[in-house]
């Protein structure tokens, strides 16, 4: 459904944030993109949504295809109209607007009747924010804000939903609610999902396929189970140390290997 081919992204035409990244999100799948801070995950999502120019970023080479059609270079509005929505990192709500106004804005590209139906769906998924519909969204708790952020994106009737670290700074219970909603939408309405996460454990449980990105390059990819059982992934992303303490020498060895890989 979505394909990135050898994307290279520069900020200010000087700083390379992403290099030769290719990834594919098949129709109906949940795909995870994992990596640590500064690896380039958010940059990739911004590139897909077409909002890189706001930060003086630019796709220097490669292409982004949605169902075979090139969307790199399209206006963000047109990308949204095609059903490609993003829940941005850190929620990015319209904090001076009420919860309902935030959601209504999520349906900005849709008709009035679709907006009304969308509100119903979102309130059904997250009853907690229905109670808070008239409150100013900036005053909600972090978890409720994340629900509003996800709800706002759902209002745009996404065929492909991209989530940028939805679990960031949230209580496990709320993370669970949000992920349950995502899995449910994926199963019931065949919504494709591209999930960007630092929490690899969670992401690899939810997704069927994963990419691991480091320093702007994809270093590893494969089905979620394969990645889960990969020794390096276990050690550096899932936090298993195999019971005993590792010495720095082995870590160095890993780093050397990584360099070779990329």
């Amino acid at each position: 459904m979505l394909a990135l081919n050898n994307i290279q992204i520069l900020y200010d035409r000087a700083i390379e944030a992403v290099r030769d990244v290719s990834l594919e999100v098949p129709q109906g799948a949940i795909v995870a993109l994992l990596g640590s801070n500064g690896a380039g995950k958010s940059t990739i999502l911004k590139a897909i949504s077409g909002v890189l120019y706001q930060e003086d970023g630019e796709i220097m080479s490669g292409s982004i295809l949605l169902e075979g059609e090139r969307i790199s270079g399209a206006a963000p509005r047109d990308i949204v109209r095609r059903g490609l929505l993003q829940v941005p990192e850190g929620r990015a709500l319209f904090s001076t607007l009420t919860v309902e106004e935030n959601l209504v804005m999520g349906g900005f590209t849709r008709s009035r009747s679709e907006t009304a139906a969308g509100l119903e769906t979102v309130y059904g998924l997250f009853p907690r924010i229905k109670e808070r519909r008239t409150q100013i969204s900036g005053y909600l708790s972090g978890g409720e804000q994340q629900m509003v952020a996800v709800g706002r994106a759902l209002m745009g009737r996404p065929r492909l939903l991209m989530l940028d670290e939805p679990s960031l700074g949230l209580a496990p219970q709320i993370v669970e609610t949000i992920f349950e909603a995502i899995v449910k939408l994926n199963a019931e309405s065949a919504m494709t999902v591209l999930l960007v996460e630092q929490n690899a454990q969670l992401a690899l449980q939810t997704a069927s396929y994963g990419y691991i990105i480091e320093n702007g390059r994809i270093v590893l990819d494969g089905p979620a189970e394969t990645l889960r059982s990969n020794q390096d992934v276990q050690e550096f992303y899932l936090g298993f140390s195999g019971g005993e303490r590792r010495s720095m020498r082995d870590v160095k060895h890993y780093k050397r290997r990584k360099r070779w890989l990329s």
């Binding site: 077409g50 909002v51 509005r77 109209r81 993003q86 709500l93 319209f94 804005m105 999520g106 900005f108």
Partner: peptide, 23 residues
């Protein structure tokens, strides 16, 4: 009005406004 709310939305967060398809 939708346009009026969109105006406040742009004032509140321009990137997020782009991401929901507001021009």
């Amino acid at each position: 009005s939708r346009m009026g709310i969109a105006m406040r939305a742009v004032a509140a967060n321009e990137t997020a406004a782009l991401l929901v398809g507001i021009s």
